[in-house]
Design a protein around this nucleic acid. Structure first.
Lengths: 129, 129
DNA sequence: CTCCGTTGCTACAATTATCGTAGCACGACG
DNA sequence: CGTCGTGCTACGATAATTGTAGCAACGGAG
């Protein structure tokens, strides 16, 4: 049967409202998509290794995202098993490389090691209006 | 619980497992984060306008993401109301600019205007092993 | 061939995030 | 005061994600 492994739903709503950038932003805005691309950045990985690399994420979602990415043409399944980036996918990853540097810079400016964690209703008295 | 507007949970699991890039990837991998940054890319927007720009996304999530981004230091609330990018947020956005071009290229190579939509089981005969 | 370990992939219940609608407090304008 | 606009929140309904367990197909011993 078809099932739902295909990727659950595929468009929050205003994804491909015209500009392809929206569709891309939507695809990338799913939970493990960016992480998967990142882990695949320089070497192909098997489904298992990818799972390990992604901190033991559920195979369900991993599979769904992998299908999404494969369908989008950013990732493909190699011969002897294992996922790898397509040329287009590699270009996409290249785009994120500057993120690495920015992340370092970001850590320095962001003083919260764990980004607070709960609703900010208590920690901050009504600082607005 | 107290609330949930703070941003619901804040870390899928292995977010900031060490490298800040993971935390950043996790933050960016939430549903409207990338879209918000994109819409804010060249002009500040009010909460309302942002909602409109983001295809009438729920104010709940928009608020949560906005809080996330503000807390992360990428977005801030201006004087007369309205959200705008911080210098760091602007740098982050700059990173995504090449994505616009890539998205166009991607549309051309991806023949599916709506990415199929259901399970991928049919289009491909057992392409496994 | 049979046992074993690997691969990619799936089922299913529980949990969490998101949606969608409605509404609040605060401030500015008339 | 009444009306509008701002940021922000409550809450039930819905969709996505998590976690655990397990499947069939392939490959290498024994």
């Amino acid at each position: 049967m078809a099932k739902q492994a295909g990727s659950t739903t595929r468009s929050v709503r205003g994804s491909r409202t015209g500009r392809p950038i929206m569709a891309l932003l939507d695809l990338l805005g799913r939970r493990w998509t960016l992480r998967i691309l990142w882990e695949l950045r320089d070497a192909p990985l098997t489904s298992r290794s990818l799972r390990t690399a992604c901190d033991e994420a559920s195979p369900t979602v991993l599979q769904a995202r992998l299908d999404d990415l494969r369908e989008a043409g950013f990732v493909e399944l190699g011969e002897g098993g294992g996922y790898r980036l397509t040329p287009l996918g590699r270009d996409l990853c290249e785009t994120f490389m500057p993120l690495h540097r920015l992340a370092e810079r970001w850590k320095s400016s962001s003083p919260s090691p764990r980004l607070r964690g709960e609703g900010r209703g208590e920690g901050e008295p009504p600082r607005r209006r």
